[in-house]
Design a binder for these strands. Structure first.
Lengths: 347, 347
DNA sequence: TGTTAGCACTCACTCGCAGCGAGTGCTAAC
DNA sequence: GTTAGCACTCGCTGCGAGTGAGTGCTAACA
């Protein structure tokens, strides 16, 4: 007994119906709603086969069938290779982006919101990472008599800032020249390389030892801490779905959404594909046993890769989600892109 | 019939019990658990009076009594003036903060988390605002051949950054000198003042008109957008409380938490007091009809005020919350404080 | 006059049970 | 190979009795 064309069509119908209704679907429903030209009895036989093949589960004897993770897998794989992902919601997305400021984190936040409102699931956007960001410019600015703000600009366009406190009073000109020296010495280096280089620089500028040491500390914590911004949208969407009618489930899901670090790990796992779909157990996250995660990557001008993800129930509208994500991925790639001033210039 | 000492003690007992159990409390419970030396019958009479006075509600005839918003109000007012707010959880809070990086937003996020985990409610932290932040330093850094990153440092220690795109190729030295000029011209000004000043500056530096105009745009959007970071912690805590067993309520609460702008408005309303407690209807937010909001302010070195808030069910543990917030407020004031290097130096 | 014991009454909540109906698997006929 | 028919399963709904916490009232007591 194998998987023939007809079985596949029936399976597809079951998945479609289940995605829509979240109710176990019976043989009669299929034979009536999706005119297959087959009676319910025949469908029943096929369904029985499909269950044996592992594509369907039966919550209990007298209920309909529910697609298994394996079924979704098949469905999605087929979708990914065949569909070639349309991008018709392009306009909506684009419109959403017009007239917006371009601050990195705001764009990410906004993207997460758009993504979640367009899909009605939960969306996550991670900033570009990958190759270690390289320092472009360092600037020390006094904020009070004995405190300076260190601003580090990296090629990812990300700005990191931290306060340095010193005992003696700060001299504006000195800060300027130190900034200049630091930029000169460290530009092009990664944060960790810069940290290694610091002792030497301090040796060469004993007069500013305290300030420089403070700066070294800052770099060190920056490098270690490395908490990238995690943008999330539509966490409350999840509560719309009967899958999360159970409070306990909802709670554990939400609290997972709150631990950004872990979330970033989960979403950030990159495959070699531009799209990844992890279904149910494939997520490897107990709290997400009946969730699916769809991720896609976007690419910035300097080749760094960011990730966008949508989290929904396993019976999510994969085709819709993939479509929207495809579009969003492109948008972000353009926005952070190679310097073609297409999208931005529209503003 | 007035509010005498005994009535007050009984009311207090009812509130305490209800805060603990979230179950309507009956006369017997009070007479047994809190030894008042009174029989349940007497308590019943008093409770009947208290209900008439508006301090108690009765969900239905054969249930116990539940404190009304008016009762909490009384309770809290008494707490605020009498208690003088202890700060014994000081140590725990302090320990939490040690060894952390000092990036503004991270501190806020962290504060929100600590606040929520210490109270088991939802916590919100808003950055300092009030007096318009003033520009301290402006730096343009090239990020690609025809894009520059504008970094604006304000006296609030906040850094704002945005990308400027230009058509011609950027010259590093030119950027440097433009940065210098801009800093010279605009330092000490507020964003809006700076925006007004821009046309004049552009006239004086025709050679860099495009760049400067781009910068002007950035300032403009920055000034308008003005989306301060809103740190939230423990949203999922809310689901622990039977008040939110109803999915629909939970959903609307969570989705309110997601609309940061609105949330910031709600939390950010400043009274003249350092502590504000809004109970139930007093919040003015329909979604929070049975929530209370406690806010406190912290103050930065330059006199700007930030806000921290805790949101919980009306029957929240006010004394605990006020205590924790008192401590947290001080911590933050110190941290962003007048330059005394107490807390930070510990690191 | 304030306090208390006693009692009737209310009413949400739980539990068990019958009935319903969607859905299945099997069998026999087409 | 397909389909009609039928017996069977079993979760879900609704209903009615029983339970118990809690009240208000009255009458007795200090």
């Amino acid at each position: 007994m194998g998987m023939d064309e007809r079985k596949f069509r029936i399976l597809q119908a079951i998945i479609d119906d289940y995605i829509l209704t979240a109710v176990p679907v019976g043989s009669r429903t299929i034979s009536k709603k999706y005119d297959m030209g087959l009676s319910s009895a025949t469908i029943r036989n096929e369904m029985s086969d499909l269950e044996e093949l592992g594509y369907l589960d039966q919550p209990h004897v007298s209920a309909g069938r529910v697609p298994s993770a394996k079924a979704y897998r098949l469905y999605v794989d087929q979708l990914l290779q065949a569909g070639r992902l349309r991008t018709d919601s392009d306009m909506a997305l684009r419109a959403h982006f017009l007239g917006r400021t371009r601050q990195m984190e705001e764009v990410m936040d906004h993207a997460a919101q758009v993504l979640s409102s367009l899909t009605n699931y939960t969306a996550v956007v991670l900033p570009p990472t990958g190759t270690q960001p390289r320092i472009r410019n360092i600037q020390l600015v006094s904020v009070s008599d004995n405190a300076a703000l260190a601003v580090i600009v990296t090629d990812a366009g990300v700005v990191r800032d931290a306060v340095i406190r010193v005992s003696e009073e700060l001299d504006q000109d000195a800060l300027y020249s130190v900034s200049r020296t630091l930029t000169g010495e460290l530009a092009g280096k990664t944060l960790s390389e810069a940290v290694e280089r610091m002792p030497e620089i301090i040796r060469g500028m004993q007069s500013q030892a305290e300030l420089l040491e403070g700066f070294g500390d800052v770099m060190n914590t920056q490098q270690q801490a490395n908490h990238p911004h995690v943008a999330i949208g539509g966490t409350s969407n999840m509560l719309n779905y009967p899958e999360y009618a159970d409070m306990e489930k909802a709670r554990s899901f939400l609290s997972l959404m709150e631990t950004r670090d872990r979330l970033a790990d989960i979403i950030g796992q990159k495959g070699e594909m531009s799209f990844t779909v992890r279904i149910g157990p494939e997520t490897g996250v107990p709290e997400m046993a009946d969730c699916s995660i769809v991720t896609a990557t976007y690419t910035t001008g300097n080749g760094q890769q960011g990730t966008i993800g949508v989290i929904g129930p396993t019976r999510m509208q994969y085709s819709r989600v993939l479509e929207v994500m495809n579009t969003m991925g492109r948008q972000l790639s353009e926005l952070f892109g190679t310097g073609e001033d297409d999208v931005l210039k529209l503003e």
